[in-house]
Amino acid sequence: MKGVRGLGRVIGLGLVAVLLLFPLYWMIAISLQSPDRVFETPGRVDYVPWPPDVHSYARVLGTTSFLLALRNSCIVAGGTLTLALALGSMAAYALARLGVRGRRVMLALLLAMSMFPQIAILGGLFAWLRTLGLFDTHAGLILSYQTVVLPFTVWVMHTFFKLLPPDLEDAAALDGAGPLRTFWSVVLPLAAPGLVSTGLLGFIAAWNEFLFALTFTTGETTRTVPVAIALFRGASPHEIPWTEILAASVVVSVPLLGLVLFFQRRLVEGLTAGAIKG
């Protein structure tokens, strides 16, 4: 009885693992083949392609448009995160600790913001970015991404600060430090774990964002990675360069996978906190 159940579980687990991981395997497997082999015989699929061929990676990493997209994504995600973490965590601390008037209203406003669909402001944001002269710029994307990342940052950090013991702050206050100084030099270092998980989730959101990036950029100098991958075109207009698309996909996914697996525990905690409190 126990043996049968054990076997059933192994089979079940194996099946689930295959469902979860096969697409990743396939992305890597196809990216490591020459297009000629993949498209040699229509309808014939090779499950364990061998030997690997890095030709597609060389092509992708040799094209300036993809490298530019990587650069743009780093600038935009980095900028979004810096702004949201600096202003968001400061606001979160004040809302959690300093008895700011109207804090319930502010938190409710931020919660509503994180729930409303991005598409609701697409048209208005388009016109507004043009007015500001920020259409098709990195700064324009960073500004528009605040609608996604900032409310989330304030909420999660707010929860985090509430749980922090107040002893050290009280000591700093007795030493004559004002709230702003206490925040920067005492509280923020203590909040580093919270900042890491919030920052990671914010970075992933900014790195993956597609709708705004697609709509508010027009060329290679500002286009981010998801847009570049969605609009990937090869040398010939008739064929879709699948092996190159998937090689590019591997290049942008692997760092993210590494980050996520490395910070696994933190991330799951952050997600849960965000979901329960949010």
Binding site: P23, W26, M27, V225, V227, I229, A230, I245, S253, L256
Partner: peptide
């Protein structure tokens, strides 16, 4: 893993 892969990438894949 599926969650960590960007949505656009998973859609292309």
């Amino acid at each position: 893993v599926p969650w960590a892969i960007p949505t656009v990438v998973s859609a292309q894949l």
